[in-house]
Computed example of a mutant assay.
Amino acid sequence: MKKQTSFSTKGQRADLGPLQIQRMLPNRYADAVGPFVFLDYVAPAIKETINKNGMGAHPHRGIATLTYILQGEVEHFDSAGNTGKIYSGGMQWMKAGNGIIHDENFNYDSQTDSKYIHGFQFWLNLPSKNKAEKPEHIAIQANEVLQKQLADNGGWLKVIVGNYKSSSSKIPNYSEQFLYHIHLEAGKSFTLNFKDKIEVAAFLPTYNAILNDTEFHKGDFVEFDRNSGDIEIKNTSEKVIDIMLFGGESYTEAIIAEGPFIMNTHAEIAEAYRDFYAGKYGEIKINNKNENYKK
């Protein structure tokens, strides 16, 4: 049996400096899909200059952030001393845990001639028992991302988060969760089965696709019901299409979100702000010098 569509939306515009941002989650219909509580889509854009000052340092607590860059380059800095740079097709994950300040540079890929930037940033809510853990950071280049070929030369599936059959992403799992980038050749189809109570959403960044016999359009965010069943993806066009498919088990604890903090109680939100203003998240420093990267 095929899963039914719950809703679809185009999100809302939320540009950040030179980046053209479409905020897909949360939206008017849903605050979360499994552990995913936030999705900003960085629409394709040409960037002619290199930004060296970051997009703006800011704190997080209680979540993990995940940046997946289709085209471009992202450099990361944080107050735990982590740095990293990923290029087109790479991803980086940061567990904010009990509090961190971070900043990112989104630039064109210095390893290629392309001036395009195009990608995603997700937030994943952490279980309450993990919200007090120390921050961590992982940078994964494109050639390290787990990729599986689809049957009948149908394309490929990249495992950004979670598991696919017997293979696992390098990103840690704190609950049952998944994020797949599916690249489907012209005229091909691909089907995934999901068990009961698993929340699933799709996003179409490039072209239209047929999901369970209904055509959706480029830029659509689509959520499905929580019953067990299949999601069949068909590409009836003459172009290769891409689909982001993500979700996981329901987050059963209370979710209290305010600004960059996502906790389980209002008291924990208040504490997150107190600790931030008290300087307990530290400062971003570079080159092992006592100079702030961004105040």
Rank of each mutant, 00 (worst) to 15 (best):
V161K: 09
E215Q: 07
D225K: 08
T65H: 09
E253H: 14
A151M: 11
I50C: 06
Q149C: 08
I63A: 05
H266P: 15
V200I: 11
H217G: 12
D220N: 03
P59I: 00
I284C: 11
N208T: 06
K115E: 09
H60Q: 05
I100F: 01
Y68E: 10
K280L: 14
F276N: 06
Q149T: 12
F120N: 08
P172M: 11
G219E: 04
E48D: 07
G34F: 03
V145E: 01
S79Y: 06
I286P: 14
S237P: 13
Q22T: 14
H102I: 00
S110Y: 06
G154V: 01
K2E: 09
S175L: 00
L70Y: 04
T112G: 03
A272D: 01
H137N: 03
N53M: 07
F246V: 05
F276G: 09
G81P: 01
N130C: 15
S128A: 15
N292S: 15
I198L: 11
T9W: 07
I117L: 10
F276H: 12
E271V: 08
D213P: 05
Y87V: 14
D213S: 12
P35Q: 00
A202C: 13
M263V: 02
I255G: 07
V200R: 13
A139G: 14
T49G: 05
Y87K: 13
G90S: 03
E271R: 12
K148G: 05
G154Q: 03
R28S: 15
D225V: 05
K47A: 08
G247F: 00
S250H: 14
P260F: 00
Q22N: 13
K131C: 01
F77T: 07
L126M: 00
L19A: 10
A139P: 13
T191K: 12
L211I: 10
F120D: 00
V161H: 03
I255A: 06
K85V: 13
Q22Y: 12
S168T: 11
Y277M: 02
K148A: 09
A272F: 05
V222Y: 01
S168Q: 11
H102V: 00
H183A: 15
K85I: 09
I241K: 05
S88E: 00
E223G: 12
I255L: 02
A278V: 05
L179R: 04
Q4L: 15
K188M: 12
K95S: 08
G54D: 08
E185D: 08
G62Y: 00
L126G: 00
A43Y: 01
K3S: 07
S168M: 09
N105P: 02
E232H: 13
I171R: 10
A186T: 12
S114R: 12
Y277T: 03
E283A: 11
G89C: 01
F120E: 04
I286S: 15
P127D: 10
K2F: 04
A257G: 09
K158E: 06
T252L: 08
I231P: 07
I171F: 09
N208D: 11
I86Q: 04
A202E: 08
Q141S: 06
N98E: 05
A151C: 12
Y273E: 06
R61G: 01
D220I: 01
L179D: 03
D220Q: 00
H60Y: 03
G282Y: 01
V200A: 14
E73I: 08
G219N: 03
N51E: 05
H181I: 09
R61Q: 04
F120K: 13
Y273I: 07
T214E: 14
